[in-house]
Design a protein around this nucleic acid. Structure first.
Lengths: 332, 332
DNA sequence: CTGAAAGCGCTTACAG
DNA sequence: CTGAAAGCGCTTACAG
């Protein structure tokens, strides 16, 4: 049966001391004799006392909650990156006595997050999608609540953590060039997402470091809908590329499928690689070469950075999380 | 700049009335004159006042938080069912002023949930995986906190909401029988999961309703690892089935792949269907027939049931969420 | 219809 | 090292 949970008063009374002392013995703040500390600890362990989070929160003006915001657009959790972030952040939170409140807030629909902030339910916020001119960012800045963005933003005053997308994609492109490919096409989504513009940057750098100026006709960007993606592929195929680089894993899978449908063999007729890895790329036929970023590590780092911000510690955001090239069948 | 949020005292003072009255005008509890209510509402709207959740919670012994527990086993959010539940529950919560705390708690590792309950951070809990003898269920029962399970459990005193798995799988099996298939194999996972035993039940019912006792050699259950799944498939293939029913979508994809690898054509040489649908089954080649359960509807329902339980309303758990057969290429 | 007061369960200066 | 008291920002009997 649901017995009333103990309160700090119960403990204090049972032990014949004041609530003040009990509180201090538990929190570790303020001087308490070793003996009383031990007594208190033993008692609460045995009687399973745990401070009420809301009372504690109210007294400290802390919630011990962190909001993880997922864009409405990605709220089906299709993106492996979002999924991994979710898991990693939950794990990190569990280890630091914090809870994760999951919030779905669309591009312009800032309402869910606004409500959350209005009610004062969180100490900080993690944004899973980095996009310039994000209304959520403005909202957060207005409120002056600590927050961190997974990804890269132009405004470096915003706390952000990202993998080194530029370097990773530069290395991937370089690897293709080293393999002797000459006409490497690039397919990708909206350049409003910093992640995409970074990938383009990596592609360009790899070429230019070798004194090559890549043919602009080989680049098709802003491909968001399925239709535009297929059209983009068609267009780029007319430029007789020997390799296609896709900015993300989903796009790569679509392209692979379409190439097959057209009777083109990968890698014999054309090579294919992705600037973001996921398990599907490993499992498909042929498996697809990709840059493998460590999303878990990234999310862990972001969580830590946010916690530091909440606690007023000196901050150091920036790049984090390594990457490696997974060379697979599609570029043999 | 982060200005201090207003408190109810600020509002009361500004309006020249007591906090009591302001509180009542906002909550709608207790009599307040129409006029003062309007004044208060106007003021708080204009000055953007919103009651602090923790203070409110402490006073009411409510957190306005609900925990959604995902098994460690599924914490990569691979399962479409888990993903859809997540989205649907978040949406439902957003519409009722509640927040969702995401918790990953493994089979035996009840610690994360225990901590959450100890601290009193949630008013209720949603369990996403229905398994008999679940330590989480025992924990929840001990604590006497409202909770609901997505799925079916033997103990009907536990609040639970499920699709009619038996009926859905019965209908699918029946449809195959109607198409003239005679030797329908069944491949599936652990019968400890109620969902799996229900699916078996549906399979059996469809046969028996037609006076057929299915060959037990056509059934391979308890297939959890990839290895055991492949072995199970091999074994069942020796029984020369004309159709293979897989208890879940993932298994169906594995089987399809393996059949192809063995040079068996679907549906020409053998037919294939799944007892749980996901988008991948629609996209693969050939597309795979499946029972399409409405996970969103289910999760919505579960949320509502839980809220009723929290509010002490009369309860009615049980079956919810329709289903339909998606007949696709794999069983043409 | 309105208000003064107690209370929710903690924490934290302030004194000793 | 320990305690009495005030306070965090609400809600809610209890009076009027």
């Amino acid at each position: 049966m649901a017995q009333q949970p103990l309160t700090i008063s119960d403990v204090a009374e049972a032990l014949g001391m004041s609530k003040t002392t009990v509180s201090r013995a538990i929190s570790g703040k303020g001087r308490v004799s070793e003996q009383t500390r031990t007594r208190v600890q033993a008692y609460i362990r045995e009687h399973n006392y745990s401070p009420n989070a809301m009372a504690r929160g109210l007294a400290q003006s802390r919630t011990y909650n962190i909001a993880l915001v997922v864009s409405r657009q990605f709220s089906n959790f299709d993106l492996p990156f979002v999924r991994k972030s979710l898991t990693a952040v939950c794990e990190a939170a569990a280890q630091s006595d914090y809870e994760i409140i999951l919030t779905i807030a669309g591009g312009n629909n800032t309402l869910p997050l606004r409500h959350l902030l209005d009610k004062g339910k969180v100490d900080g916020v993690i944004l899973t999608s980095a996009i310039e001119h994000n209304p959520l960012v403005e909202l957060l800045q207005e409120r002056g609540i600590p927050f961190v963005v997974l990804g890269t933003l132009d405004d470096k005053s915003i706390l952000q953590v990202d993998n080194d997308q530029v370097a990773g994609c530069r290395d991937l492109t370089a690897a293709m060039l080293e393999k002797g490919m000459q006409r490497i096409a690039l397919l990708g989504g909206s350049q409003r997402y910093t992640v995409n513009s970074s990938r383009l940057e990596g592609y360009l750098q790899a070429h230019r470091q070798r004194g090559i100026e890549p043919d602009p006709a080989l680049r098709m960007l802003e491909l968001e809908s399925l239709q535009s993606r297929l059209a983009g592929l068609e267009q780029v195929l007319r430029q007789s590329p020997d390799c296609i680089l896709c900015m993300d894993d989903e796009l790569a899978l679509i392209v692979l499928r379409q190439l097959k449908a057209k009777g083109l063999r990968v890698p014999q007729d054309i090579r294919l690689a992705a600037m973001y890895d996921s398990e599907d790329l490993e499992k498909c036929e042929p498996s697809i070469t990709a840059v493998r970023f460590d999303a878990e590590q990234l999310a862990h780092r972001a969580y830590q950075v946010l916690l530091d911000a909440i606690n007023g510690l000196p901050l150091n955001s920036g790049l984090a999380g390594g990457y490696q090239l997974a060379l697979r069948q599609s570029t043999l």
